[in-house]
């Protein structure tokens, strides 16, 4: 597997380092020559000086044989163009863009970027998971399909406490994936009873989220 990382800021640097340690073939492209010199000292000949949005740079980097191009510069417009150039001119199968402005995540997907990573949203969801009194937490957003994975704890006065999964009237396009009971994972069948205090992990359509929250948490 060959990966090209564009952008030698902190993210690009540590990403490259980690990927090398994992045994992948990696090339880091960075615009600033003095950064290139420093990184070459540390990594050897896997750092290249150039503008990753330029076709000539991508060609020299071997984008034509790359499995993944990851654009992690500090500028969203650069990350977008790097990924689109990689896709359009070099037919790279998977492009991953760092998105600095959370509002751009959806736009990037519309414009053909396969995966977007946004620091702000990642930190936000980590915070949500860490706050003990949050009864309803977003674990993962699959925005392509407008689906999301959520975790919610069943409150004692929830209408689903004590009911079998089959008998619960979930909102449309919602499914329970797992139950966590006293730290143990239960993969529920239709007969499994949900108890107050269980953590329910469910996949749901965005528009059904409010109804699901109401059902489980009964806020």
């Amino acid at each position: 597997m060959y990966l090209i990382v564009v952008g030698g800021g902190k993210v690009g640097y540590y990403l490259t380092k980690t990927l090398v340690n994992e045994g992948y073939e990696v090339l880091l492209i960075e615009k600033n020559q003095s950064k290139v010199d420093t990184y070459t000292e540390r990594f050897g000949a896997i750092v290249m000086n150039g503008d990753g949005a330029e076709a000539a740079t991508l060609a020299a980097a071997g984008a034509g044989r790359a499995d993944v191009v990851v654009a992690v510069t500090g500028d969203d417009e650069d990350n977008l163009v790097i990924c689109q150039m990689a896709k359009q001119r070099f037919h790279v199968k998977r492009t991953i863009a760092r998105v600095n402005n959370p509002k751009n995540e959806e736009l990037f997907r519309k414009l053909g970027i396969d995966v977007t990573v946004n620091h702000t949203n990642v930190i936000l969801s980590l915070i949500e998971q860490q706050i003990p009194d949050r009864h309803f937490v977003h674990l993962l957003a699959l925005k392509h399909a407008e689906l999301e994975v959520v975790e919610a704890s069943v409150s004692p006065d929830s209408p689903i406490a004590g009911q079998a999964v089959n008998d619960i009237r979930f909102p449309p396009e919602t499914n329970i994936i797992a139950l966590l009971r006293h730290g143990e994972l239960i993969i529920p069948s239709g007969q499994t009873r949900v108890e107050a205090g269980d953590d329910v992990i469910a996949v749901t359509r965005l528009r059904s989220e409010a109804a699901l929250r109401q059902l489980i948490v009964n806020e």
Binding site: E25, A59, G62, R65
Partner: peptide, 15 residues
């Protein structure tokens, strides 16, 4: 004496 010749492979090709 060890004589070494290195074929350098461009980044556009696999190693």
């Amino acid at each position: 004496v060890i004589l070494v010749y290195v074929v350098e492979v461009k980044q556009s090709l696999p190693l």
